[in-house]
Design a protein around this nucleic acid. Structure first.
Lengths: 143, 143
DNA sequence: TCCTTATTCAGACTGAGTCTTAATAAGGAA
DNA sequence: TTCCTTATTAAGACTCAGTCTGAATAAGGA
């Protein structure tokens, strides 16, 4: 029984005076074990396939909570959707997005991260997340 | 009469075997003189106010053309809209976006730009534009 | 001038994200 | 435990940025 796993999350909820509901804990567990990028509808579909009954609306309502708790982070945006991923799985990274084949390549650069932090400080800006994606055409799609 | 102004644009159209229509040239001129950030519906509204009759669809259809010709560039995205700005007006920059007051602060960092270029080269990726925004809460909104 | 075909317009459509309302359940008080 | 207040939930309607369709128009080559 991994009671400990969602301990941090329910602590977070209490700290924020949000109610610790079974729904939220189940959502937390379900989301935490997802791999790769997902949009909301994709997430709901996956969770259903895994036998977890959650409504789309429930996910949308709790998105800010999951983001603030650091359970997920925003990954990248296409014209249509916003994609997320479970944050605990791996360290932060940014994305190259091929608009032709929709494939995504991850990159991370500690120098860029550091410079970003400095910029935020300079403007006295509390950054909650950032979106950094290079959009274009990958090698394959250029033939 | 600044005939020369849209010369580059009509050359671009010809090079791409796209038809040089009065509509497109008018759109080009209208868009070029806009200042600040705008989304599509806002742009259409502004152009109407300035006496230029363009349909929303016309703008959407020609968005890729204007982007590729370098007339506008993508600026930042909110949950709902994508914002653009006339590119010729000023040099490239990125954005801090306050999700509370929706205000936008511009920043630019040549080192980050350079590092991005290197990353794109490493993955042999032809970058058409990039989206780099730090989302959070500005000084004022934190009281 | 004619003909082909890209472009334009009007308006319907799609779907991500939001909102409403009634029902439910968390958690504090006694 | 029981009751009560109030946040949360489910279902489904709604909004509106962006896309698509089909008919009318006009660019540009022959």
């Amino acid at each position: 029984m991994p009671k400990k796993k969602n301990g941090h999350f329910s602590d977070f909820l209490k700290r924020k005076s949000l109610r610790v509901t079974g729904e939220r804990l189940r959502l937390f567990e379900g989301v935490s074990r997802q791999r790769g990028h997902f949009n909301v509808d994709g997430l709901v579909r996956r969770l259903h396939e895994q036998g977890l009954r959650v409504s789309r609306d429930m996910v949308y309502r709790n998105l800010p909570v999951l983001l603030e708790a650091g359970v997920i982070e925003q990954s990248f945006k296409t014209n249509r959707d916003t994609f997320y991923e479970a944050a605990a799985r791996k360290k932060h990274h940014d994305h190259l997005y091929c608009r032709t084949c929709n494939r995504v390549v991850e990159f991370s650069d500690p120098v860029i991260e550091e410079l970003q932090k400095k910029i935020a400080e300079r403007f006295d800006f509390k950054v909650e997340f950032h979106c950094h994606q290079l959009v274009g055409v990958c090698k394959k799609c250029r033939k």
